[in-house]
Amino acid sequence: MRKFTAIVYARTMEFLRDKGTFYWNLLFPIVLVVGFSFAFSGNNDSIFKIGKIGEIPRAENSFLEFSSIEIINYEAGKEEVIEKIRRHQIDMLIDFNEQAYYLNNEASASELLRILGREELVNFTEREVAGDPIRYVDWLVPGVIGMNMLFSCMFGVGFVIVRYRKNGVLKRMKATPITPFVFISGQMVSRFIIVLITSIVVFTGTNLFLHFIVNGSYLLLVLITVLAILCMISFGLIFAARLKSEELASGLMNLITFPMIIFSGVFFSLEGTPKLMQTASRFFPLTHFIEASRAVMIDGAGLVQIMPNLLVLGGMTVVFLLTASFFFRWE
């Protein structure tokens, strides 16, 4: 136990005293969240997302064919789609079967869409949905924090162990009675504490100014974060098992993390993206973190609703850890 805490202490000091990394880990996500909240505060994204149920009748110059309008096809689950409008995630739903369309009267896009559809939807009934707009930042903040967690976990454990292997720290450890298990767990625990605290600080820090919508329980958010950090650290360990070259390690990690960030829905919703992409995103820990925390924050989901995400994160952690420990070598 004494050796374990000593390793955790040494690694944590290394992080805290390495001012560059320290500030980067803290400031990068804050800057990103604040930056995006300004950039999108005008809510002027030109793409409108319109959901449809049923067949669109043929029409010349239909506004539904404008390039700035994206059509998403829904088969069933009308309730859920209406919920999406309530949260300003999609701008409109047209139900061709029932000859009705839905708009959120608090969304700025609604007025424009109403005018655009005036001719084509002349016989349709308009049904208004009310709901506070979910600002882009409310939706974005779990994504940015998750992304920062991913970087910090992968590079703070995986990459650092590759560096230790290359510069000979691991060899020096091998010359002592310490086992790889104790050494690596120490690294993991140190990084776990760091990432958990950074995430909480970033969230509360930005929350002071941006007042995020949190409909669910904070405790649940912490639970998701804990599981996601463990999962991401274990994922990074797979890279740390054998690699000797820092360049190769950082190359591979970037190669993996960038698609993860893009396809996990950090910056935009996966709604309407190709099926393949959505399936692939199921394999990324980040997706499950983001999905679960958005569910808790925005929909006020409880433990039961996010259980699938939590189980996947837990399962992935076990698989990653087993893989990493199977392949691990000091040298």
Binding site: A6, R17, G168, V169, P177
Partner: peptide
């Protein structure tokens, strides 16, 4: 006790902390 021809140690820690770290490894 082993001293390599060239070695690296965990960074950003003092000599005292380095010694304490390695002391913790031995019974």
């Amino acid at each position: 006790g082993i001293q390599f021809q060239s070695t690296a140690l965990p960074e950003f820690i003092t000599v005292r902390e380095t010694l304490e770290l390695f002391r913790s490894f031995y019974p």
